[in-house]
Every structure is written in C-alpha cells, then in structure tokens.
C-alpha cells in the first residue's frame, strides 16, 4: 500500500506540495475557517520526495479548481487532488490567474487602493515564473515577499 503522510480520507480535497510554512495562509486565502462541519487537517513541514512541503486535507468538500488557483500566489507548486472513495480521481496543479483581486494589498502607502474607496485591491500578473505582479492602480511592483501582503 502507498504510504500516506496524513490519515486517509474517504472523500474530499487534498492540497499537496504547498510551499512549506504557508498552509495556514492557504486556508485563509480560500476563506476556510473551520466553522462549517467539514474536518480539516493540516500537515506542516512534512518531508516529501522533493523536500519539505505542507499538506491540507479537507473532508467531504471538493474544491473548485478556479477558486483554488488563488493560492498559486503563495504556493505555486501546489497540486489539488480530489479524493473519492479513498482514491485520487482528479489531480491538477494550480495556475496563477491573470488577475489577483482582493487577496493581496498594495504596499505603496500612497496608492489609491489603500484609501477608503469602494474597491478591492487588484494586481495584474506580469510574469509567472518567477512570479511578478503589479498593482492595477499605481502600477508599482511590490518589492517584498507577496505572502507578507496577503490581506
């Protein structure tokens, strides 16, 4: 039998190969707070074939891949595995979307997106590998780690 680093689940979604240390941010981006009744388990810094990674398991819920793509910002190598009856029935890698809306804030204090305006911060993806984004409003490229800008 295949070795599982986490307890097997019958049905649900496994997000694998998350950049180590970012599992909690992934849940935050997905808006999963554990208030519903699905069981969520998190493994942080597990050693996999390709080095360390985080894993998130969500039972009884199949996440839509479009929605999950939002996490590509902070976990570009993540894979989404849909589990049915203990088997992986679908697997795909996350892809960085063209636009990132309402997930990261602009670090430029003089940017209009940081004022009290009825808008969500918005970024345009300039390059995927390595990831480069620029603010749709002030057009500046954040110089710091994107994970630190998650709202």
């Amino acid at each position: 039998m295949k070795e599982l680093k986490v307890q097997p689940i019958k049905d649900g979604t496994v997000i694998d190969h998350i950049t180590p240390g970012n599992a909690l941010k992934v849940l935050k981006i997905l808006g999963i707070e554990g208030r519903g009744d699905s069981i969520i388990s998190i493994a942080i810094n597990v050693v996999g074939k390709r080095g360390r990674k985080d894993i998130v398991k969500i039972e009884n819920r199949e996440l839509d891949s479009n929605e999950v793509n939002k996490i590509a910002l902070i976990a570009p190598n993540a894979t989404i595995n849909i589990i049915r009856n203990y088997e992986v029935v679908e697997k795909h890698r996350v892809v960085v979307p063209d636009e990132i809306i309402g997930i990261v804030r602009c670090p430029n204090p003089n940017c209009i997106s940081n004022s009290k305006e009825p808008i969500k911060p918005k970024f345009i993806v300039i390059k995927r590998q390595p990831l480069r984004i620029k603010c749709y409003y002030c057009e500046r490229e954040p110089e710091m780690d994107i994970a630190s800008l998650i709202i």
């Binding site: 430029n108 997106s113 808008i119 749709y136 409003y137 057009e139």
Partner: peptide, 12 residues
C-alpha cells in the same frame, strides 16, 4: 489627485 492610481480608479 495626490494618490497614485487615482485616475485609474476614476476611469473604473
């Protein structure tokens, strides 16, 4: 306007 990106916001 003094804020960067204000014209883009206005255009929206």
């Amino acid at each position: 306007h003094p804020k960067e990106g204000s014209a883009r916001l206005a255009a929206e």
